[in-house]
């Protein structure tokens, strides 16, 4: 049994080099169930590299990523077998891409997109799968009658919500999000933020969210890491980092926000 305060994920000195070039360097942190960690920084600061290395999509040059699995206790994700890692990524983890097209299969129906992840973990009962897909469409505020429609007929905001439903249907405990509200209209963004916040609370999800939008980071994340040139230059309580930033680069980021 995982204790409430045990970290779900522990990242230790993670470094990703591309030849001589630094992707991210010496990043360490831990994450508990129900906790949302925001990673901010400008393009090229290493946010997405870090996210890929943590989420087992790209083996880091150095460092460890340890995860509290449901069955086997704490495991280094890069020391697991390929099969174990794939199972983890399909069940206990979820990855929400900035572009829903990267996270959805565009040539099968919305229902099949959700059902596919269930089938991948062994669910075979058509009725159950269809019901689960329908329930999840409801949770992300998509009407049931769109169940059999292709995602390509959906708006950008609906596609993003469908991607979230597809990811969360297997009840993951850890969700990675790469700019989930990027590229959406502000009105659609607000709806998605509200939805995400509710799901995080109701499902006690641990989330790592990469964003360049400090307002999104403020509203969703408990803790913040600020990255510049591959390194974490400041981290802490979200409102403390944003309201009383200590590092020169964080001050520059915060002071560059347009006020409305």
């Amino acid at each position: 049994m995982t204790k409430m305060n045990d970290p779900l994920l522990r990242v230790d000195n993670l470094t990703m080099m591309y030849g001589d070039r630094v992707g991210c360097k010496d990043v360490s942190f831990d994450l508990r169930p129900g906790e949302v960690l925001g990673i901010v920084g400008e393009s090229g600061s290493g946010k997405s590299t870090l996210l890929r290395s943590i989420s087992a999509q790209q083996e880091p040059t150095k460092g460890r990523v340890e995860y509290q699995t449901r069955i086997d206790g704490t495991r280094d994700v890069y020391e697991m077998s390929e099969a174990q890692r794939r199972l983890l990524m399909r069940t206990d983890w979820a990855f929400v891409h900035q572009n829903p097209r990267d996270g959805l299969r565009m040539n099968v129906s919305a229902g099949a997109n959700i059902g596919e992840r269930l089938m991948a973990v062994g669910d075979r009962h058509y009725g159950n799968i269809r019901n689960a897909a329908d329930t999840w469409l409801g949770k992300v505020e998509i009407a049931s009658e769109r169940l059999d429609d292709l995602p390509s007929t959906f708006s950008g905001g609906m596609q993003q919500r469908l991607q979230i439903a597809r990811n969360l249907v297997t009840s993951p405990r850890l969700v990675f999000m790469d700019e989930p509200t990027g590229g959406l209209d502000v009105s659609v963004q607000a709806r998605l933020l509200d939805l995400l916040r509710g799901l995080v609370h109701d499902l006690n999800l641990a989330v790592i969210i990469v964003t360049h939008d400090l307002a999104v980071a403020r509203l969703l994340s408990h803790r913040l890491m600020v990255m510049q040139q591959g390194k974490v230059i400041e981290s802490g309580l979200t409102d403390q980092v944003l309201d009383d930033p200590q590092h020169a680069y964080t001050q520059l980021l915060v002071s560059s926000i347009l006020q409305n």
Partner: peptide, 26 residues
């Protein structure tokens, strides 16, 4: 730690600021 401070704010310390900061639509 940030965890400890968040827990302290949740259970011990309330703060009425001059600014309302909430997610739109809620």
């Amino acid at each position: 730690s940030p965890h400890a401070i968040l827990d302290m704010r949740k259970r011990t310390m309330g703060y009425v600021s001059q600014f309302l900061r909430v997610i739109p639509r809620v």
